[in-house]
């Protein structure tokens, strides 16, 4: 082959010249910049407002950074802010939410993973019918089932208790989680399951010794999904608990929207951030897994 050196080539060669500031790029990055700012702005406003004193808020505008940073609103939001009834801030709600979220997440994941495993590997007659009902159940507006569940919980003496709310979260988390686990277990190689059966392992043996160790990522996805969902719940909290055990979202709403007294916007925003802190942390830490969780919520059976 003849080797010509580059200098001998004439006319267009190499990459097509592109201006870094082409109209396309300006439009593309310009739009994305504006969009990003728009989405980020509320978080920024929350933070700066929560760090200002009330006099500064009354004078300045909500976007200006605090001249004098104060953490007093955060302290007040956490320990002293008043809901309609009491004045002990968000702390009670926070601990209630912790006491609701932890058992709900564990219970719902345990039940749904075993369910999903039974559906994926131990198909029995009628299993698919129940599963279909379960999936359709995910689309039924909660309002339709609110009152029947009140009655059921009352019958077993758990209405108003945290245990009752844990059961409710487990029930409503079941469709999506079962789907998540069923799909995941179905995607595992079936030979593995068959080999274990040939080796004489039973239902629980296979579940604990093979399925669970192989499925840590999906358990993480489920956990992210559930912690976020349950922490953010408002409706079930209001309906199924008493004021002294309201979760954080409900306390937050009561603090901010209570009509008594002077509005302390900085305290309100501090309270709002504190409430959003748990899911935000999970979101920023988990990144791709969070996205996988919501994508899983969107996949069809």
């Amino acid at each position: 082959m003849v080797d010509i050196t580059s200098s001998q080539l004439s006319g267009p060669q190499g990459p097509k010249p592109r201006k870094a500031l082409s109209r396309r790029n300006i439009l593309l990055y310009g739009t994305l910049f504006v969009v990003t700012v728009y989405y980020a702005l509320p978080l920024y406003v929350m933070i700066v407002t929560s760090l200002k004193g009330m006099p500064e808020i009354r004078l300045g505008n909500i976007f200006s950074p605090p001249v004098e940073v104060t953490f007093e609103p955060w302290v007040k939001a956490w320990a002293q802010a008043c809901t309609g009834l009491t004045c002990d801030g968000l702390s009670t709600g926070f601990w209630n939410s912790v006491r609701i979220t932890i058992p709900s997440v564990i219970l719902s994941i345990v039940i749904a993973s075993v369910n999903g495993y039974a559906l994926a590997n131990w198909k029995f007659k009628g299993a698919d019918a129940f599963f279909t009902i379960l999936i359709f159940g995910a689309f039924i507006p909660y309002q339709v089932m609110l009152y029947p569940i009140v009655i059921m919980l009352r019958e077993i003496g758990l209405y108003g208790s945290l245990t009752g709310l844990v059961i409710v979260h487990t029930i409503f988390g079941m469709p999506i989680l079962t789907l998540l686990f069923r799909n995941y277990f179905t995607s595992l190689p079936e030979e593995l399951f068959k080999a274990a059966r040939v080796d004489g392992a039973g239902f629980w043996g296979i579940y604990f010794r093979i399925m669970v160790p192989m499925s840590l990522p999906i358990f993480t996805v489920a956990m992210i999904l559930q912690v976020t969902g349950i922490w953010n719940d408002f409706l079930f909290g209001v309906v199924y608990t008493r004021p002294e055990s309201y979760p954080m979202t409900v306390s937050l709403n009561n603090i901010v929207n209570s009509t008594q007294g002077v509005k302390e916007y900085n305290v309100n925003m501090a309270a709002t951030i504190i409430t959003g802190l748990v899911p935000l942390t999970i979101y920023f830490v988990s990144g791709k897994l969070f996205v996988r969780g919501i994508a899983a919520g969107a996949v069809k059976g």
Binding site: S6, L9, G11, P12, Q13, G14, P15, K16, P17
Partner: peptide, 17 residues
């Protein structure tokens, strides 16, 4: 694909770009 260097001619026309 945008080439990094060199030329491509098709039917005696430089079509690199």
């Amino acid at each position: 694909l945008d080439v990094t260097a060199g030329q491509i001619h098709i039917n005696d026309k430089n079509v690199t770009w």
